[in-house]
Design a protein around this nucleic acid. Structure first.
Lengths: 344, 344
DNA sequence: TTTAGCACTCTCGAAGCGAGAGTGCTAAAT
DNA sequence: ATTTAGCACTCTCGCTTCGAGAGTGCTAAA
């Protein structure tokens, strides 16, 4: 696959651009007229033959225009697209909305999903930030009614987890507070293993509580991603490539089914740096469900401390420029917010 | 619309049943053969004419079989369907899963949505339980870093809400704990107004904290439903009535767009009793988006204290028996769980 | 009141056909 | 050595036609 010359690049870029817009095969005449090219349609056709031989274009049938191949999108994304950013006013609006949302993580998530879906006109997903290595910070024990106790655990990074505990016999709120204070003091800054090592220094009540802390965290640790937020699912249904519902089903299954999503995320963003946008085109041969789909993903957060993932799923024929800049921007914004809420 | 005789009811029930299964117009011959009726197809045709005149059936075109009208589904649901329950083994399995999920509300929600989607083979939604009238129960203040403080509020019904607070100047954890204890003691059992009435009894730090408590709760109060959980969206895409994506879009928009959902819920389940299953067929003339859709909804929880809503959205041609029993069962189960976690 | 018989209607898929769009090739022009 | 005009060729798409099949409604007999 020899390097493309300038004219070839131009034609390829134009075809990708037009096809993204119209979803129709692009013909040589069409291209010349639309862009007032100072070359003839015959020349364009010659170039098209080159690009077809190089594997960047294909024809749906003998006498139709050309359509970009997956390879073309990859080339476009790598070499032709250039670095774009969201318009400054859009950036300001979005930033403003986030700061208005206060410190409520679940609102950040919903907002991020909504912004991504809207900017990319595709389906978006955002996973809640999760600590990569959780350090214990604080425990509250609150008696609710009878022998029921609400445990509220705070972990490094501000993750709050709750759990109910049923005691063998009623215990006063005072006793609970004392126990919580003792556990908080002894376990502060420790991770799961550190806490287990303290076994034996606690009385019966405290041991009961700690067992639940352990269980809860063990369960949480098994999952890569936190709560998943989605938006814009109906956007992809509007795209012609998902007109017959079968293809739409396949694509949306990936977002809906936890196991598929975890698989996708674990093989991509987990190995990448924060705010580093990854683009998966056409499932890259691996994901059968993502044939005809592209996914733009990024990891956000504070690496080593708290991270989450976010991204957009749309047809291969996707406005990569806009989508990538939206993902990059929101990812950066969330990273800032998460880091801010870690330390100031 | 005169009352139907037994034969008419039988035929109507069979047509609804068959159409739900096959999604094809039902012909008189087909019916007689399949159910070994001891009447002739001509007789069935006569009955069909009656039912068509009565508005329960219609023909897609002159020489096709009959299709139930929305009116037919309503009649079916009210008069013909009878009371069904999920099989006992299914009930046990589901119950077991819920108790395995411990006390984690967000897992209940996910599980409920998943069970509903699976049992009804349609799209499901579940809103997190929210206090109808929130009484303050407990406050923890946890210093994180510098002047950042994490507030964790516990409200009646076990709802835990968190908020970040940035102080003017650093304050020790000890001081924070004292303030939290004082606020907890003074405000315990009070609602938003009760807390406002105490204004003036607090020092600067405590007032700052309370302002945030107020803000957060004010914001929460404006929403009818808590976090929304969805599942089985891809199920509805498998139905032939949603084969062209346009109709699918309309239906899924209702689930996806918060405002539409809130509208739907506020006009239905909010006025109904808990565990009382409501069935909306074809949008009932009001919801344009829900043409060709039916929604089966119920409110769950402890009325007056904590409630949420849950339901299923599918094509009008839906297995109402199975769906209604699934919704009723899961609603009851969630009610029990919520009530249990309130008091024991 | 039920049913057999039958003419009638309408959809659906296959087949046929022409218009239109777009190509690839060749030969001339730059 | 490129570029381009010209042209024949190919293939899709929309349209129409047509026959088979399914299902009805009506009528007259049981």
């Amino acid at each position: 696959m020899a390097a493309l010359n300038e004219r070839q690049k131009l034609i390829l870029a134009l075809i990708v651009h037009d096809f993204v817009e119209t979803a129709q095969p692009i013909g040589s005449n069409h291209l010349v007229e639309r862009y007032n090219l100072d070359i003839s349609s015959a020349t364009v056709r010659n170039v098209m033959v080159d690009l077809t031989d190089a594997g960047y274009l294909r024809q749906p049938h003998t006498s139709a225009g050309r359509v970009p191949t997956e390879e073309a999108y990859r080339y476009f994304v790598r070499q032709l697209m250039g670095h774009t950013e969201l318009p400054a006013t859009t950036q300001r609006t979005i930033t403003h909305q986030f700061y208005q949302a206060g410190r409520d993580v679940s609102r950040w998530m919903r907002l991020a999903a909504s912004v991504l879906a809207h900017q990319s006109q595709a389906a978006s997903l955002v996973t809640a930030p999760r600590p990569e290595q959780a350090l214990f910070k604080h425990l509250s024990l609150i008696s609710t009614q009878g022998r029921q106790v609400l445990m509220v655990m705070v972990w490094s990074g501000g993750e709050v987890r709750q759990q109910m505990l049923t005691l063998a016999e009623p215990v006063s709120q005072e006793q609970l507070s004392t126990a919580a204070a003792r556990i908080t003091q002894l376990c502060q800054g420790k991770d799961l293993e550190g806490i287990s090592a303290l076994r034996g220094q606690f009385d019966a009540l405290e041991t009961d509580v700690l067992k639940l802390v352990n269980e809860d965290l063990e369960r949480a640790r098994r999952l890569i991603s936190g709560e998943v937020y989605r938006d814009g699912l109906t956007n992809v249904l509007a795209e012609p490539e998902f007109a017959e519902s079968e293809s739409a089903r396949k694509a949306l299954r990936v977002l809906e089914e936890r196991s598929l999503l975890e698989d996708l995320l674990s093989r991509t963003v987990l190995n990448s740096g924060v705010d580093d946008v990854q683009i998966l085109i056409g499932g890259e041969g691996t994901w059968q469900e993502l044939r005809d789909c592209s996914v733009v993903l990024a990891r956000y957060g504070a690496p080593g401390l708290v991270t989450g993932a976010l991204g957009v799923l749309g047809p291969t024929r996707m406005a990569y420029g806009r989508t990538v800049s939206a993902v990059r921007f929101v990812s950066g914004l969330l990273s800032d917010l998460v880091v801010d809420s870690l330390a100031e």
